[in-house]
Nucleic acid binder design. Sequence first.
RNA 1: GCGGAUGUGGCGGAACUGGCAGACGCGCUAGACUUAGGAUCUAGUGGGUAACGCCCUUGAGGGUUCGAGUCCCUCCGUCCGCACCA
Length: 832
Amino acid sequence: MVILAYNDGQYNFQTVERKWQNIWEKENTYRVPNRSEKPNYYVLEMFPYPSGALHMGHIRNYAIGDVVARLKTMSGYNVLHPMGWDAFGLPAENAAIQRGIHPVEWTRENIANMRSQQKRLGLSYDWEREVTTSDPEYYRWTQWMFLLMYNRGLAYKKLAPVNWCPTCQTVLANEQVSEGGCWRCGTPAVEKDLEQWFFRTTDYADRLLKDLDLLDGWPERVRTMQEHWIGKSEGTDVTFPLPGYENGITVFTTRADTLYGVTFMTLAPEHPLVTKLAQASPRKREIMAFVDKCRQESKIERAAADMEKEGMFLDSYCLNPLNGERIPIWVANYVLMDYGTGAVMGVPAHDQRDFEFARKYGLAIRVVITPPGTELQADDMTGAYVEPGILINSGPYNGLTNLEGLKRINAHLKDQGFGVPSVTYRLKDWLVSRQRYWGAPIPIIYCSHCGTVPVPETDLPVLLPEHIDFDPSLMSPLAHVAEFINTTCPKCSRPAQRETDTMDTFICSSWYYFRYSDPKNDRLPFSKEAAAAWLPVDQYIGGVEHAVMHLLYSRFFTKVLYDAGWVQKVEPFTNLLTQGMVIKDGHKMSKSKGNVVDPEEIIAKYGADTARLFILFASPPDKDLEWSDQGVEGSWRFLNRVWRLVKGLDVFGAIDDAHDQLSRADRDLRHKIHRTIKKVSEDVEDRFSLNTAIAAIMELVNEIYRYKDNVPSPDQNKALLKNALENVLLLLAPFAPHITAELWQQTGHTENIHDCAWPKWDETALEVEELTIVVQVNGKVRDRLVVAADSSSEEIEQLALTAPKVQPLLDNKQVDRIISVPGRLVNIVVRP
RNA sequence: GCGGAUGUGGCGGAACUGGCAGACGCGCUAGACUUAGGAUCUAGUGGGUAACGCCCUUGAGGGUUCGAGUCCCUCCGUCCGCACCA
């Protein structure tokens, strides 16, 4: 606080901010009813994981959301702006393991600290709606959601090879693994078979894809990412007969037109036929050793780009369904069991991967599509030919375009019973089981008589046991708590065992935005009326890192709840803003890089208003933001400039104003006021351009200073100045809520500034008396003309042609034509 | 490899529909006030040049146009996402 010792003229943000935060807290200013006479508006920032303290990314997220919330409130909406905690998850459990703190305690302390930080930011949350996902009153309904999925046939259990992180001792979904390692700790993932609960997201794949069209309030790039993630692919399931096996081998292909070019078949190492076929091979031992080797590499490693393609011949053959040709069957590491059918037909001439594989193992390459006019020779090829062309070596289909061939071959396959149209998605079912303590227990009971029995709704929540052994070597902590496991069957009352897996935390965050509409409901997750009053979220704001998983899962939940009749809309978030990262010295802020700026320090030194203002001013919200300590200083100076301006002008008392006519300076200032209102309103509401909105307010402040300094005191229009200052404060209020509230009160206003109406601009004040017209000759600016606003194009052109700086350039030249853009420029096009 | 961004002064960025490039802020320079300045105010600040003139300038090169940071083509750099998807 060195600065304050020097600067007696500066405003005391500590006092001001504390004062207003206390008032807002005491008066419950931001509590919002579900219904009022105003229209509802729901703005939501992605709720945080309570890691311990807020970082700059949080501040940015909340600052943006708070501007929207406050602006919408001033614009006459009943605004829901809630906050809560995504409180289940690994770090709490790791803290328990490493430091012996119980997750309940650790989470409670972190939330208390972060909530107090949020309060010191002056965010307009309705704290009465706060939710915490690790609270039994919340996870009770998360369990209810699981039962909803279960009862609708959308939750099921299967044995599946999963990514296993040896460090976290947990299963990782494919999408939770980055660069071959666990997304949390980086440990290389290995493969392991476990019985797991899944949600049938693939049942909704088509709707998740199609309804992206409804999301025109989302960034294009997020929709594209989801589209690629879902990865719809339309093709054919083609069955290759396999002597001795009734069902043959089925492959999924989008390229049935290349069927005559199949020279080998490849199976994934996990494919059930591999073991069977290997039994018949003299090299059985070798083959099984190869399969084992493949299975030890995790799926992630096998999917790596530079993975060497490897395979082995299985000493078996299947038959091409079109011509009965014998096709050798291989097992290959590049075929994935969980995409398509786990078997791929090898067409080396027209698929690059197959081409590489065939060249490596000396398999035949047969061209069946050739560019028109030439005939492609297999021996000359250096890569697969994947372009369209004309079918050759394809029996009755020779000479057709491959597209026409595709249609006819598909029809033929269908007739003969060898092929059915098929759609395959890249999207997988959602693995929701976690072998962890700190999550919502899956509400399932296993009874030796009744089998798998869901916990009755009336018995929810299934509570986490408090006393727990966090020995990290225990795969699943709950599996060691007898009083948790042992229960009675809800159906037959015999002794039975509970499921010991807990739920993926993405489930908790897939429905929290519904809970905010009715957070205290102890009979339902939320009432239909409350949800209908608020949902969908009008404006959702969060990091682009959630572009796929969280947003896709939330969309899935919303659709299921819609199908079950709980909600009226099929999409949860009407408008989405994905904010950019906060960068320092060119890199993302991270502890490992040592470039972290602690928000706590900034708020302590400059206050919340300055911190918020800088972070919003430094960059457009959807772009990355380069942190600058000096930039913060600039925002601090600006707020002080506003403070001094308002305090220094005595215009708020009884106004005895003799100015019944506006001077030129008055009219210019009035014009600037209304232009600023228009610009700020449009920048914020139409295009989220918060940085330019703040710049416009700064310009207005500069203009008021100029007026004050340049117009002699007796000539100053006090009513106008008062109006100017009031508008500055109103426009600035959503960005810097404390200082504006204080100045508003200090200038004699009794109403809270945040309850005032957002200012409206007056179109007549936007009209100008004079315009500056640029004069160009051959596209180069040569002069500027100040003309009356109502001048005609002809008048302006005449003035331009005779302008002193222009005329010499027209000597000995012929004027070809003159282009006039009204209100902007005149371009005189000349020839020598 | 595929997909998506993105490239503008010393720095963050502005220019919304093809019409004055560099708004606003930071930094810097000079001055004022001052015991002092890390406060405040004034003036200046893209580059070149003796020039209030003139020329150049939005990653590079071409093109369309009266006019291009903005549209089209080719290339280069940076960042992000996904990746054997049959």
